[in-house]
């Protein structure tokens, strides 16, 4: 085994073993709905983005633009992909997949969207609904196991199996689409389809949710990469709206990845050489 990747492999094996052990003990009893925390209402992201963060750092100002926290600990292969993405951004050839209306942001990118969120808890399942997109993420807490290798395929939000640890929802995500289908951020950050995440969601104040996610990716990362976000509850009675991306999308993408701008009559107004 490549010595640089040994810590990643050992860490993943330990995490998987702990996950299976904890899951078998937790799967025997579902929580009662009345015992679940109150995550009702609409929420909006208040801090966090895709840079390395502990739970405490999630409450601090963003790191400076040149901070090493801004970039994942990429393997040489993904360092090269990232640098190529930077060049493509500079040339306006790094299209955002969600510019094609109907394409989901996917997990974990949907943690960093604007507009409203809803976190709907039920004993057997939790739904994360994002107004922007929209995106629907289902997290199963009904005692099921992760699908066996070969029994699943990559999707935008993956397979999310978890459990409640008192007031904290803990879940593992796998089977995610990677580079070529999704991005983490428009700053050029991408992961591979080997990405797996372990996420914890809990209230840290009556109207503040903390989400911490540890990304592991045997192909893209040399070590696990933690990120953290917080969300603030919107005023009671807030409405979550429709988001029909195709309603008036004036920014189509060309076949070579350039983002165009249309006038109100649907004509391209960019000066194209």
């Amino acid at each position: 085994m490549n010595s640089a990747r040994r810590p990643v492999m050992v860490g993943r094996m330990l995490a998987a073993a702990l996950w299976i052990w904890a899951g078998t003990t937790a799967a025997q009893s579902l929580p009662r709905a009345a015992d679940l925390p109150d995550w009702s209402g609409a929420w909006t992201r208040s801090t966090g983005a895709f840079y390395e963060s502990t739970a405490e750092q999630a409450l601090e100002p963003p790191p400076p633009a040149d901070s090493p926290r801004r970039k994942p600990p990429y393997t040489p292969k993904f360092e090269a992909i990232y640098r190529d993405n930077l060049a493509r951004i500079a040339a306006d050839r790094f299209p955002d997949p969600i510019s094609v209306c109907g394409t989901p942001a996917g997990w974990p990118r949907l943690l960093a969207l604007p507009d409203a969120y809803e976190f709907v808890t039920r004993p057997e399942q939790t739904w994360v609904l994002t107004e922007n997109g929209p995106n629907v993420m289902r997290i199963y807490t009904d005692g099921r196991s992760d699908p066996a290798p070969g029994d699943f395929w990559a999707t935008y939000t993956g397979y999310n199996v978890g459990r409640w640890e008192k007031d904290t929802l803990v879940f593992r995500s796998l089977g995610l689409k990677g580079v070529g289908s999704t991005i983490l951020a428009r700053t050029g950050l991408v992961m591979s389809d080997k990405l797996e995440t372990t996420t914890r969601i809990r209230l840290i104040a009556p109207d503040r949710l903390l989400v911490t996610t540890v990304l592991t990716d045997a192909e893209a990362l040399t070590r696990p990469w933690p990120v953290a976000f917080t969300y603030s509850r919107l005023p009671p009675g807030s409405t979550v709206y429709d988001y029909a991306c195709a309603e008036n999308n004036r920014n189509p993408i060309t076949s070579d990845g350039r983002t165009l701008t249309l006038d109100s009559g649907g004509r391209v107004i960019d000066k194209i050489e």
Binding site: T44, I89, D92, F94, P95, D96, L113, D115, N249, T259
Partner: peptide, 27 residues
């Protein structure tokens, strides 16, 4: 006060709201 704080949060986070859907390399 809570409304005001929420609006400030919204204004801070959503100031990049137009970034939500597509590259802004043209600007």
């Amino acid at each position: 006060v809570r409304f005001g704080l929420t609006l400030l949060l919204l204004a801070a986070v959503q100031s990049g709201a137009a970034l939500a859907h597509h590259s802004t390399a043209m600007f």
